[in-house]
């Protein structure tokens, strides 16, 4: 067993006693991207919510989840070290770009100067140098998406979950952002779980593709 991986063991999701997804047993290695494909409404997003620990109460989940060798099944979301990207960038509208990133940065980096440098550095690498004081609302869709990825990466997750993060971008931006995301993930060697219904996403991920059965679902 690879202790640095994201591992699901017999994870099953139920809604009102009916099995929605599972049981899924799956191991995502370092730097690997596993794609879960399925029709919308088959419970893909609920599975990710279950992994994050943010599953709505109406659902029940069983099985165990471990991340980087730690059993996280019973941990609260903020202690799981699992980053997530949604369809929408969900940048906090009341904070500047820099504040959004600082919110994610670990408080262990305590000097203001150091924090500022880390943020500038991340922005520069993403081609967004000098954007720290910008209002998120003034950014283009592609720029916002990149900031959202930077934000999640700055929180130093041990694994990443992607919930159709490309689906709301226009075609040209989508391709560029997709490459941007996968490049970053590979350099960081992060285990990544991608859910999507877009074949192109799966192809770009260049990893295993698991088809979720929509027959067992349909909520």
């Amino acid at each position: 067993m690879n202790s640095a991986a994201l591992q699901l063991h017999n994870v099953t999701l139920r809604l009102g006693g009916r099995v929605l997804i599972g049981p899924i047993t799956l191991s995502v290695g370092q730097g690997e991207v596993v794609t879960l494909m399925g029709e919308s409404g088959c419970g893909k997003s609920s599975l990710l919510a279950c992994l994050c620990g943010t599953l709505p109460r109406a659902f029940t989940a069983s099985g165990t989840i471990s991340n980087a060798g730690v059993d996280i099944t019973a941990l609260p979301p903020e202690s799981r070290r699992l980053g997530i990207l949604f369809q929408d960038d969900l940048l906090f509208p009341h904070m500047s770009v820099g504040q959004n990133l600082a919110f994610a940065l670990s408080p262990a980096i305590s000097s203001r100067q150091r924090r500022r440098e880390r943020i500038e550095q991340a922005l520069t690498e993403a081609g967004l140098a000098g954007f720290a004081d910008r209002d998120p609302a003034t950014l283009s869709g592609g720029q916002r998406a990149r900031v959202a990825l930077l934000r999640v990466l700055l929180s130093e997750p041990r694994a990443l979950l992607l919930d159709e993060p490309f689906s709301k971008l226009d075609l040209a931006t989508r391709q560029r952002f997709r490459e941007f995301v996968f490049d970053h993930l590979r350099t960081r060697n992060l285990p990544t779980l991608l859910v999507t219904h877009d074949q192109a996403d799966a192809a770009a991920a260049r990893g295993r593709v698991i088809q979720l059965q929509s027959g067992a679902a349909g909520n």
Binding site: A49, C52, G53, T54, P76, P77, E78, S79, R80, R81, L82, G83, I84, F86, D88, L90, F92, F103, A104, S106, R151, V152, S155, P157
Partner: peptide
């Protein structure tokens, strides 16, 4: 949109911090 608070939590912020900030 509760996804904002999920995002905050997955970034490692405590529920109280997410609520206040």
């Amino acid at each position: 949109d509760e996804r904002y608070s999920r995002t905050g939590l997955c970034l490692g912020a405590t529920p109280t911090r997410v609520f206040l900030r």
